[in-house]
Every structure is written in structure tokens, then in C-alpha cells.
Design a protein around this nucleic acid. Sequence first.
RNA 1: GCCGGUGUGUCGGAAUGGCAGACGAGACAGACUCAAAAUCUGUUGUAGGCAACUACGUGUGGGUUCAAGUCCCACCACCGGCACCA
Length: 801
Amino acid sequence: MNKYDFTKIEAKWQKYWEDHNTFRAGTDYSKPKFYALVEFPYPSGQGLHIGHPRPYTAMDIVSRKRRLEGYNVLFPMGWDAFGLPTENFAIKNKIHPAIVTKNNVARFKSQLQSLGMSFDWEREINTTDPDYFHWTQWIFLQMFKKGLAYKKEMAVNWCTSCKVVLANEEVVGGVCERCGGEVIRKVKSQWMLKITEYAQRLLDDLDEVNYLERIKVTQRNWIGRSTGAEVDFTTTAGDTLKIYTTRPDTLFGATYMVISPEHPVIEKWQDRLENMDEIRAYQEKAARKSDFERTEMAKEKTGVCLKGVRGINPVNGKEIPIFISDYVLMSYGTGAIMAVPAHDTRDYEFAKVFDLPIIEVVKGGDVTKEAFTDCATGIMTNSDFLDGLTVEEAKVKIKAWLEETGKGKTKVNYKLRDWVFSRQRYWGEPIPIVKCEKCGYVALPESELPLTLPDVDSYMPTDNGESPLATLDEFIHTTCPQCGGEALRETDTMPQWAGSSWYYLRYCDPKNDKELASKEALNYWMPVDWYNGGMEHTTLHLLYSRFWHKFLYDCDVVNTKEPYMRRTSHGMILGEDGQKMSKSRGNVINPDDVVAQYGADTLRMYEMFVGDFEKTAPWSTSSIKGCKRFLDRVWGLQEILTDGDTYREVVQSKVHKTIQKVSEDIESLKFNTAIAAMMEILNEVYATVEINKAEFRTLLILLNPFAPHITEELYETYCGGILNEQEWPKYDPELCKDDTVEIAVQVNGKVRAKIDIAVGAEKDDVIAQAAADSKIAEILEGKTIRKQIYVPNKLVNFVAN
RNA sequence: GCCGGUGUGUCGGAAUGGCAGACGAGACAGACUCAAAAUCUGUUGUAGGCAACUACGUGUGGGUUCAAGUCCCACCACCGGCACCA
């Protein structure tokens, strides 16, 4: 027998696939389609990480199976190539980021090809390609025209290390998601995208897609819808202060009010306020705090009472004090609250610090000890016309009262904020807007797209918060497309999330220079049938791209409300020590080394076999040998191969069961047990005895999606022809059954014997056979049988004493 | 604090309420070899027993059931996310 020379075999088939364009997505739109998608990588300088092949192999398996099932499959790949690391590398080594990107892409691509991924490379895209970002800019312009992109002076998250503005989603635990640097608040003029306008639809349409439940839950929490009421409190200054509350039922318990330190009403009242110095000092202190510090100091409540203005509770006319405190956020609700210390934990803490009255309005707890926040069991008290009602009844009644009297109204709020869309960086899509003295912000005409990046000598970010582009006079100065007068270009660029928010659409028609993709291609390929990607993108890329898609749906560019039908997620691969792989820990595994030592097929098998696909799993340099041994043994089957066009009767049911198991497990992400099933049939049925051609052929096709090279090679040698042109095997449920089955016989729930019975035997016969077993008869001797449990083809249980 | 998730041999992990530990690794023993590696065969949850076998065993404590890793209640530990959102 010739040796299993995986290096030679893998190179041979990779070349064959490339030469024959084997995995090109067809343009025959009459065939049933299947669109499988994996997140396109950021081509970093480190090359492919050992974690990358896990989701890629999973979707490759599904894609290969679908092709064998007769689908027209789109399984594309591209590069999300704008971004900071490339820019930093370019700065450090004085190489243009475009060159850096080109080199990194070349390396990534050859690495992916060496893994035998069945991507359609004719559809390769790159977000930094002007032909691509032409349409990223175009989408931005449509948003600008519809008022969804707007510029706003506001406090933003500023990473002191990256020297760049971050979206709320990019701030994790008070620090920069990417570099871990300190994030402070900085007031800047920023481009914003009105994702909040789509909050309700982003929430509602989750019901129409098949995402893992935890993904839906995370998105729902992030959107954070709450229903409450806005209530107008008049003040002794003669105006009204609008507050938001989810507990309007507790209005009678409001004993003070709190507004955010940034609330504009302070400026309005400054002549009336007697302690303005104290107020200013507190405002400044709050403004200086980073988000992280604000969280740190969350334990002890601080604040300043406004002397000179008081609020008036609309339900009872009582005057109550107004405080400023940084536990109230300007960016949520109205930036002002009514405080009900008896029934809100934070208000309770604040009231204790400032010794404010606590009035119980919901019975059920002990408000002398802690706030009582349970809505489900409480009964209203001290609340005039609400007394005796449950909390839910009271909410309905008070809302009606507010609407009637015009003192308030029902209001829905979301935690979701608009998307901060500007970055002060060079290596990103230029924002196609100019600022004209006369006309304000003006969109570039679509004919001027793509607006490309100018060549510069220095890409260094600046400390003053300006983009490197701002230093380029020839780039900045331009004319206004509207009035022809002098104008300045926008110098900020788009965030990395821009290019990835619509890339799945471009794959449908990647070379189109008239539109982002043709209607015909979009109508055929969309939506993506199955999208697998990381959990870490749930509130970033996944939410952003759903938003863009819905916008494009409204613009009649796409014909589906949602971009992705099914979303699944893979677990991370950890180092052998169970820690995240990192250079500093020295636990990094390089995929190139694994391919060289074991081959791509073994790497693919192992990444799928390592554990539950959805969970993190530590790498094991010894366990991977098991997968190599399995492939060696498949190779060795040549030795015992015999003729035969049909499965032998003795192995028939095992073959059908294996087809069923592998087919079903692939669909439900249980790749590890699919592989186990193939190992099992090899161990139990084929290994030492014989395998005929029909059986061999079926095994090779089942194994092909997992280990495409070795199976193609064996198929070509022994079955003739190309495996990729064959059909996925079918199983017959009737033939999955055995003639006889071993069942357990229990006495009082404990297994005491095992007997063989004919499948589908009559209940009475089986029980008689079980009772007749010598062991069972001995145990039952002298006992009375109280009950006989019979589970067909599984067990018999005698309950006796 | 809130929301998710997870707890099973030495390790990774399997188990529609129905024989716990499939499959893989590791370990041990044997075969082959001058030897090692590779390969092949066997054993491998714990305790007791020469053995057939017996008892115990899925984070902890209760419960439902003829039968619980699986369902219910309470708790513990770890992981992830959100975190003053009124």
C-alpha cells in the first residue's frame, strides 16, 4: 500500500479545485440556493490564528454537504482590512497601510487555501478597495439624505491610548475594547447614525429569525426597551421639569427630584440658584470623571441640593427639593427623575446620605430597612385614589390620570444610543461630506464616489483629537457641490464596523460597478441562510449590520427585512493551559505548524472533534493524534477493500444509522458526535474484517466535508471520478433498525440482567422472556410483582417486594 | 445587583426521563523490534472480592417518578455579558 502522503495529496487537490473553479457559486438562478457565511477576518500581521479554522471548517462542512445535496452554494470570503493595527504597523515601519494590507491578505489567503476551504475565491472582497468602499460611502450618503446621519457636538468616549473616539459598544468595563486603555469623556463634534430610530424594529424582528437564544437575549438587553411614563413637574421657577419613570404608580412616594449634572435647566435657573459655586464645582468634578471612575465611585452617592428652586409633585401639589447627582445620566430618558426612596434602591441610598424623607406607598416590605422594589406582590398605600390597588392596576390607573390631566403620558425608552460614527484616523473610509460656510454640511455628488484616501507622509494620530487627514491642505480644501464656494472636507474617517455592515450583500455581485449589487443577484441569494460568527460581535457587528440592512430595505435596495436567517456561534480555542492564547503566555499554536506536521485534514477533523462547537475548548497536542490515527486507518481500508455494489446485509443497518447520525449532527452543530459516529463504524464494522466498495464509497462521501483531500484522493483511486460531483447518501429509516436488540431487565429500578429480544416483539412475550431469565427468576423468587413497566426496545422493570 | 451559561472518570467530552461515561486522549499490560518510535491487541469510574458479583457514583441538600445527569424547589462554585438606564 502506498503511504498516506498528506502534503502531496492536499497540494494536489487544492490545485485541482483552483484550476477547475470547483466551488464557484453558480449563476443558474433556477436552482435552489444556499448562502453560508462566516465572518471575514481582519488580516492581521500575525497571520491566521488557530481559532480561525473552527468556524470556517464548520461552515465549510455545511457548504460541502449542501453542494452534494444539489444546492447552488454561495460560500465567500473577503477581508475586513481597515483598522488600527495595520495603521500602527505602517507608522512604525514607514510602509503605506495599503501595502501592509496587501501583504497580510496574501498570507491569510494562502493559509486559508492550505486548509482546503471551499470558498468561491472569484468573489473575494476587500473593504479597503475603492471599488468596495465606493458603496460603503454611497450607503452613508443615503443615510445622510434621509437624516439618519447627523453631526453632533457631544461628550464621547475617547481612548487616551488609541487617540480615537469609540462607540459605546467598543467601551468594555470602562476601558477600550481593543487596547485596554483608559477611556475619558471628551466633547467633540461627531458624525452619528440614528440606530435608535430602528430600535423597535431591531427588537421585534428578532422573533422572525433563527438565532441562538443567548444571542437574541443579549441583543434585547442591549436595546433595553422599557415602558413607563413621562411626568411634568412644575417648579417654583414657574416652568416645568419633565422626568421619566417606569414606576408612575409610586408618584405619591416621590420626596425629591434629581437631575443630571449636565442638565440644561441649571443654566436657565442660574440667577435663582443661591449655591451656584457649589453646583459648578460638582459639575466640573463629574465632567472630569471617566466612565470608569464614575462606575468605581458608584458605591457612595454624591450630589448637591439646588437652593432656590423646588419641584411640585403633580399628584399632591407638595413642594420637594431638587438635587444634581451623577447617578442620573443625561443621555437616558429626560436626564431628570423623581426619587422614590421607599421603592428604588438607588434613591434609597441617596436619601440615607442626605437624610431625606422615605414614604412607603407600596405595602409588602419594610422600608425602614431597605427599598421595597417587588412589583408583583405589593399593594398601594398612602396614595389617595390608588390605595388598595396592585402595582400593575395602579400603573394603568395613574397613566390614564396623567393623560387625562395632561400632566404626563406613557413613554417607551431604550438604552440603545445612536452610533458614534467618526474616527480620527487615516486608515478608514473617508466620509464623503464637505462643510460649506453658506450651505452647512453638504453631501458629495454620487458621481464623485469613491472618495479615496490621499497619500500622506505621516499617518500619526494627533493628540488634539484631529484626524491625520486634517493636516493635508490639498485634501481639505475643496469647493461646495451646492454653491460652488469654498468648502472644507470632512477629515474624520468611518469606523471599522462600516465596511462589515453590508459586506454580505457585495458577495452576491462583487464586481458590479453600477450599484452595490444587482437586484437580481440580491433577490436570488438573500437572505444569508446560515451565518456563524463570534459572540463578541452580538452587540457590535451583528446589530450594526441588521440596522444597515433594514435601512437598505426601506430604500428598496434589498428585499428582505433581515439579513441573516440563522445565526450560530462557536467557542474559542484556548491554549493547552486553558488560558486564552497570547504571545506573552507563550501558549500560541500556529496553524501552519499543525498543517505541516499532521496535514489540513487532520487539523480540520480535530477542530471539529475537540468538543462542543459552541463552547470554548483547550487545544491538546496529544488529542489531535487521535484524528490523525483515524485518517490513517481510513487510508488503510484500501488493504481490505472488496467488490460489491450494495451494502452487505450484516453491516447494512449500521451504515444507514451512520448516514443518519452524520447528516443530522451536521445540521445541529454536533460535529464532534458526527465524527464519533464515523470512528465507531470503522472500529466496529470495518477495521479488521472487510469493507466493500459500496460501503467505502458512502464512508468517503460522509467524511468528505470534514476531510476533503484524503477522501477525494481515495475516491478517485477506487471509485473513479470526482467526489464533489456525487450525491450525499440517503438513509432508509426502516433499515436503521436492527432485527434484534439487547434490552435491560430491571428489578425495582436496578439492572439485573440483559436479554436479546426481536425488535417490535409483543409486550407480553418480552415480559415473559424477562421473567424467565434465570437471574431474574432467582431475584423474584418469593416476591410479589406489584407492577411491570415495559418500554419497547429499551427495558423491562419489575416492581416487586 | 441583574441577565445568560456551565458543573459528569486522569483530561477533552457522550447520553429523546429508560443500561451513565459513546468517541478521542492519557495511563497500564502484552505483541512486533537489538532497542526506541510507529503500529496492533487487551485493560482502565471508585471500593470490596480469586471470581461470578456486590455496594457506591453525574457540584450540595431536598422533592416528583416504577425509573432522574436529564424534571421541580433551595443552595454552592466557576465562566461570560450588562451594570447607577430611574
